[in-house]
Nucleic acid binder design. Structure first.
Ligand SMILES: NC(=O)c1ccc[n+]([C@@H]2O[C@H](COP(=O)([O-])OP(=O)(O)OC[C@H]3O[C@@H](n4cnc5c(N)ncnc54)[C@H](O)[C@@H]3O)[C@@H](O)[C@H]2O)c1
Ligand SMILES: NC(=O)c1ccc[n+]([C@@H]2O[C@H](COP(=O)([O-])OP(=O)(O)OC[C@H]3O[C@@H](n4cnc5c(N)ncnc54)[C@H](O)[C@@H]3O)[C@@H](O)[C@H]2O)c1
Lengths: 208, 208
DNA sequence: TATTTATTGTGATAACAAACACATAAATTT
DNA sequence: AAATTTATGTGTTTGTTATCACAATAAATA
């Protein structure tokens, strides 16, 4: 292992490895070769080894990887050892689905606050979290630090909500609304964009 | 414009251009330069021009692009002139959100069937579409051709549903379940994977 | 009409990422 | 203990994508 710039694409694969390893750990497996993992994931074994080699020598030649060890290594690389505080904006279909998902997984993602502008929704308790009004967020009534914001509000409101989240100090945002956010470049934004993906799919299908 | 291999990344940006152009058309704008579009999207103007140049000379030097013309060109490139038939599996939070979204946009995406395994949901009518039982899909009780399947079922059921969709002849699948699908390579699969994106985000935040 | 300004389109180059070939080393077999 | 098998780690090569520099051309101005 040498100090090298780590490809962005490598980082994007790590969570995929991580989830697969997690499943295999649960199944009680304890050694894993890159070829075997490759078969589960449809990612070439050389790619997997190269990705891992950026971070250290985790395997044993002739044997493979110790599954638990590798799992822990990736956990550490991705900063998943600590818990991360999440705020969700928009407690309708998508917002609820995310609360279900994160609560069920009891991953290191902790939903510390939820908010909505609809008075019929404000005050409800979902998965143990009280839904606040957007103004509470603005006025810092909610005291906990927020690491990540997830936006699941109406497209026209997404920008306003994003700005509030940034004011509250989030380091990154996941945006489900089909709205481009214009945020300072130190805030990392992930667009979860169904219609864009449909566009890609339809290009692909129509030309194959 | 010369015959060249078109980068995958270029195709992924086209839907982003498309949506932005759509909004600007609605606003009544009629000419647009790559620099201006660049400011809306945060994508460099040279990148935009290069992307478009793979498909033809759509602009006028010294002037820019005719907005409507460009919009129509991208529509044609992406095969968005025809309508596409969609089946949605899993009519709970995510499934309903998608039905709202596609119905509201009245994009060229037509939800022709929806299905679920829960007897309490089967038979309900959502946005004018009757929810069928999964077995109806298996037995081809639903007669319409399906171009694209969207999976929003429980992770453990995703693979089974994917196989049914492939048997029904879909060309591509969008999968919201955190489950890797092992499908023939001619079927294009898009994973909408929140937990992977959170992994990436947390790496980014933790190291910056 | 000549000059300047605005803006596109593109060949060339640079940056990035994947694939490959093979050296290395552990385990197993002969 | 030598040979074979298995599997990792990595320098090199190949392929892909983004950026740059600038030629081409239309419009506006002098
Ligand atoms: N990326 C995807 O895959 C995908 C799929 C479907 C829908 N969407 C998008 O996700 C978003 C949410 O969709 P949905 O169906 O869950 O929700 P919805 O459209 O049914 O409701 C939006 C919710 O946000 C709340 N809201 C609106 N403005 C707000 C504000 N300023 N502050 C706080 N809360 C506010 C509303 O009260 C409501 O509860 C929409 O933008 C939709 O277009 C994305
Ligand atoms: N990618 C993302 O951003 C994201 C976010 C949240 C949840 N999810 C995932 O999306 C999926 C759906 O989540 P949700 O909260 O909308 O749904 P849910 O988990 O509340 O319910 C799943 C639905 O699928 C139905 N179903 C189960 N098995 C089925 C089968 N074999 N055939 C047909 N229908 C079946 C159930 O009856 C139910 O209606 C889950 O897998 C969840 O993990 C993804």
């Amino acid at each position: 292992m040498k100090e090298q710039k780590i490809p962005k694409e490598t980082i994007k694969r790590l969570p995929i490895y991580y989830r697969c390893l997690n499943r295999l750990v649960v199944l009680g497996k304890d050694t894993l070769s890159s070829t075997e993992l490759s078969e589960y994931l449809g990612i070439k074994p050389t790619q997997i080894r190269k990705d891992l080699s950026y971070f250290g020598d985790f395997g044993t030649r002739g044997v493979g990887y110790d599954l638990r060890r590798l799992f822990k290594e990736i956990e550490s690389i991705l900063n998943l050892e600590r818990t991360w505080n999440i705020a969700i904006a928009g407690i309708s279909n998508i917002g609820c689905a995310i609360m279900d998902l994160l609560d069920f997984n009891h991953s290191g993602f902790n939903i510390v606050t939820a908010f909505d502008s609809n008075p019929n929704v404000v005050g409800n308790v979902v998965h143990g979290v009280t839904v606040h009004d957007l103004n509470d967020l603005k006025e810092c009534t909610v005291e906990e630090p927020i690491d990540i914001g997830i936006i699941a509000v109406d497209p026209v409101d997404a920008r306003e909500v994003a700005n509030c989240l940034v004011d509250r100090g989030v380091g990154g945002i996941i945006n489900f609304a089909p709205t481009l956010l214009n945020l300072p470049k130190e805030i990392e934004v992930v667009q979860m964009d169904l219609t864009s993906e449909l566009g890609w799919l339809v290009f692909f299908i129509g030309n194959n």
